[in-house]
Amino acid sequence: MNESDVDGAKLLAPLRGTTPDGESAVSVEKAIATGKRRRAVRGALGAAAVAVVTVLAVILVPAALNTNRDEQVRVATAPTEFNVLRQEFTVGSAGGFTPYAYRTGRFAQRIDLKRAGTPDPTEPTAMVTIYPSGPYSSEPDGEPAPAVNDRRAKYVPSAGPRSTRIAWEWADGAWAYAEVPPGPDAQAIAHRVAQSVGRGGTAPARVPFTIGALGEDRVLGVVNSMPASNHGPTAQLLIGRTDPSGASGEMVGIVVGLTTASGQQNTSLDGRPAIESPGRVTMLDGGPGRAATASALISAEPLRLKEIAASVQISGDPANPSTWPVNPVR
């Protein structure tokens, strides 16, 4: 797999393709194609590597002329990685858009938005992506834009033919992007969406189940629905390994979640009823009307899919996120 394909895998947002009956509407081919377009744009930007700097959390600024007091200024600092089990940011409703899904990750946190008052779309109508400091936060080229929450900002080239983007340095050496559909007021709308992004709260990213030991795999992120979603509280766990090239962050290999129990049993795992199909294993004994699924997005050994699906244990009330476990790995 080349870097473009891996980048496409990173752009997958499994939750937005989940329908009430558990069938996925996500197109892997479409997501990978989107990733290739976005990588091409980033390559065209030609952003230089960010220089390593040391930032003090609090510094003292000399007092202005004709004053006798120093003013204490707090400098916003960014981590080099995010916690995959925390939602590090908040996004409000702005510009006619509202958030409906949140995806965590070490090297990006992403929030999908839709037009307010509409059902969850197959593809997000608008999107916010926040990066930590490091290789993914090189300053982009672009035209000056109004400051976002008092931080410098730029209107930057679109990642595709149907979007308008604004980038802002949400903390020293770390950049975020808001992307909205094109239109006469698209830049102003993108700016309003960006203004609605806040840091704080760090809400836990949870799933209503636990899984067994991951071996060489690890948790790469969690996808949670947000209050505006019409799917109710839903969640999926993203599992995979570090990209072998070391250049593109993480590669999502397996998505684990709960779904409605349906379909005809065609196999048994450890004496338990299951359905096995190419790239997907569903355990049918997840409780009343529920099933646990493990789906391969990129590549996964069939035996590994079976092991992960069979290890899923429902924990807490699937309808009440406050009861879900903090750590999904037993």
Results as ranks from 00 to 15, higher is better:
residue 8 G to F: 06
residue 10 K to A: 14
residue 10 K to V: 15
residue 12 L to F: 14
residue 13 A to Y: 07
residue 13 A to R: 12
residue 13 A to K: 08
residue 13 A to W: 05
residue 17 G to S: 12
residue 23 E to P: 05
residue 25 A to D: 01
residue 28 V to M: 11
residue 30 K to T: 13
residue 30 K to S: 14
residue 31 A to I: 02
residue 32 I to G: 03
residue 32 I to Y: 03
residue 39 R to Y: 06
residue 44 A to S: 11
residue 44 A to Y: 05
residue 46 G to P: 00
residue 53 V to R: 15
residue 54 T to G: 14
residue 55 V to F: 02
residue 56 L to K: 09
residue 56 L to H: 08
residue 59 I to N: 15
residue 60 L to W: 06
residue 60 L to K: 06
residue 69 R to V: 08
residue 71 E to L: 05
residue 73 V to F: 11
residue 76 A to F: 11
residue 76 A to I: 06
residue 77 T to S: 04
residue 78 A to N: 05
residue 80 T to K: 06
residue 80 T to I: 07
residue 81 E to L: 06
residue 83 N to H: 15
residue 87 Q to T: 03
residue 95 G to T: 12
residue 101 A to W: 14
residue 104 T to V: 08
residue 107 F to A: 07
residue 107 F to G: 07
residue 108 A to C: 03
residue 108 A to P: 03
residue 108 A to I: 08
residue 110 R to S: 09
residue 114 K to I: 00
residue 133 S to L: 15
residue 134 G to F: 09
residue 137 S to E: 07
residue 138 S to D: 10
residue 141 D to T: 15
residue 142 G to P: 13
residue 142 G to T: 12
residue 143 E to T: 11
residue 150 D to P: 08
residue 151 R to P: 12
residue 159 A to Q: 13
residue 160 G to M: 00
residue 166 I to S: 07
residue 169 E to L: 14
residue 171 A to F: 11
residue 174 A to L: 04
residue 181 P to D: 07
residue 182 P to R: 15
residue 187 Q to E: 09
residue 188 A to I: 08
residue 188 A to P: 04
residue 193 V to N: 09
residue 194 A to E: 08
residue 196 S to W: 01
residue 199 R to S: 10
residue 200 G to Y: 08
residue 204 P to G: 04
residue 205 A to L: 02
residue 206 R to A: 01
residue 208 P to E: 02
residue 212 G to A: 02
residue 213 A to T: 00
residue 215 G to C: 00
residue 219 V to E: 01
residue 222 V to M: 03
residue 224 N to F: 11
residue 227 P to K: 04
residue 232 G to N: 12
residue 239 I to C: 04
residue 239 I to T: 05
residue 242 T to R: 05
residue 254 I to M: 10
residue 254 I to N: 04
residue 255 V to M: 02
residue 255 V to Q: 03
residue 258 L to N: 03
residue 259 T to S: 11
residue 261 A to D: 03
residue 262 S to E: 10
residue 264 Q to Y: 10
residue 272 R to Y: 14
residue 277 S to W: 04
residue 278 P to K: 04
residue 279 G to T: 02
residue 282 T to Q: 05
residue 284 L to K: 01
residue 290 R to C: 00
residue 290 R to S: 04
residue 291 A to L: 09
residue 295 S to V: 12
residue 298 I to G: 02
residue 303 L to N: 09
residue 303 L to C: 00
residue 303 L to T: 12
residue 303 L to W: 04
residue 310 A to R: 08
residue 313 Q to W: 03
residue 314 I to E: 05
residue 315 S to A: 11
residue 316 G to P: 04
residue 319 A to H: 02
residue 322 S to G: 06
residue 323 T to F: 15
residue 323 T to V: 14
residue 330 R to A: 15
